[in-house]
Amino acid sequence: MNTYIDIGINLTNKQFQNDTDDIVQDAQDADVAKMILTGTSVRNSEESSRIAKQYPGVLYATAGIHPHDAKSFDSQSILKLKNLLLQKHVVSVGECGLDFDRDFSPRNKQEECYKAQLALAIEVQKPLFLHERAAFAKFIGITKDYLPQLPKAAVHCFTGSLEEAKIYLDNGFYLGFTGAISDSKRFGHLKEVVQYVPLDRMMIETDAPFMLPKNVPNSLLKKYHERRCEPAFLPFVAGTVAQFKGIPLSKVAEETTQNAKAFFVI
């Protein structure tokens, strides 16, 4: 039997309100054995940790400040994140990084917040869950200064170019892929990226409720909530990887699951 690990779900999102039990059960029914809740602010990371704690061995959490929320970063933020990261079920620092696409937080504040979380990852020796949009040069420039001491790092929801993917791989990063890879209109270039990235440096995620895979049948969408992405849809991400690489689905399931277990120590 294929089993999967979803390395990034936004279970605190209001689209999932009062729905946690069903979301988790439906995912497990679809062979998604473990899921990691993404923390995007101090408050959100605390909430993700609280939910994950209720499902031991199934749900885990990250603790971090997303670049969109960097404006909330203050003198207490790192201490609060560190306290969360001392818990065993909080497995990664992030989601953190830079987003110069939307600029919801000032760029200098994003950089300050990101650097502080890189230092935190080194201190607590837990892997990084990274976000980068339209900021590749600055992002890689900052990160390289910390690389010699950094634990493992994954660029989540990768939608960049093949050239960017190569640079990430050359620097030891893992890449996380979502349902975006099945969107040939917006992200057609990702087929070449998926074909290039070695399976042992790849993980899969839904980023639910976002990034709905294009290959989810309408019958399943009606069963859930119209356009809402669910962790139960992770096998469709894996299916696209298998199709692009011309390998069995079971191989994708096995390798990405092993990668996630080793990366997050779960």
Rank of each mutant, 00 (worst) to 15 (best):
R201V: 03
I51W: 02
Y60T: 00
D31M: 10
F100E: 02
P248H: 10
Y146Q: 06
L169C: 09
N259V: 07
C113Y: 05
A153E: 02
Q258L: 14
T257A: 14
K53V: 02
K222T: 08
M203R: 00
P148C: 05
G239T: 07
N215G: 10
Q15M: 14
D6N: 00
R186T: 09
I181D: 05
S48L: 11
Q117H: 06
A262Q: 15
K261Y: 14
V155Q: 03
P56M: 14
K34S: 03
V93G: 06
L147I: 13
D99K: 08
I36Y: 10
A61R: 13
M202C: 11
I7E: 07
E254K: 14
K261A: 06
A116E: 09
K166N: 10
A70Q: 03
H131T: 08
N44G: 13
D6K: 05
I140H: 01
A63R: 01
V91C: 09
P213N: 08
E192S: 10
S219N: 13
R133G: 05
F177V: 10
F236V: 08
Q15A: 15
I9T: 14
K115E: 11
I78M: 05
I167H: 11
E111R: 15
H131I: 05
K53T: 09
F187Q: 06
A153H: 05
A165P: 05
D200I: 06
P148D: 04
K222S: 07
A27V: 07
C96S: 03
V124D: 00
L86I: 11
E123A: 13
K152E: 08
F233T: 06
A116C: 11
Q195D: 08
N171K: 09
E254N: 10
Y60M: 01
Q54F: 10
Q125E: 14
L150Y: 00
E255M: 15
F129P: 00
A153Y: 02
P127W: 01
L221W: 03
Q117G: 04
T240V: 12
H66T: 05
G246N: 10
I142P: 00
K223L: 15
E192L: 07
L190I: 03
N108P: 01
K34I: 04
T159P: 02
I65D: 01
N44S: 13
I167K: 13
F263E: 01
D101S: 13
Y114C: 01
S48E: 12
P209N: 05
E111W: 04
G160K: 11
A165F: 10
L59P: 06
Q28L: 13
P231R: 09
V93I: 08
H225N: 15
G141L: 09
V155H: 00
P106C: 14
V58A: 09
T20K: 11
G172W: 01
I23H: 08
Q195I: 08
K126G: 05
I23P: 04
E111A: 13
D6Q: 03
D101M: 09
N218T: 14
M211P: 05
D31F: 11
P213I: 04
A262S: 15
L150M: 04
G8L: 02
S77F: 04
L249Q: 08
C229D: 09
F233Q: 03
D74K: 00
E192M: 09
I7N: 06
F129R: 00
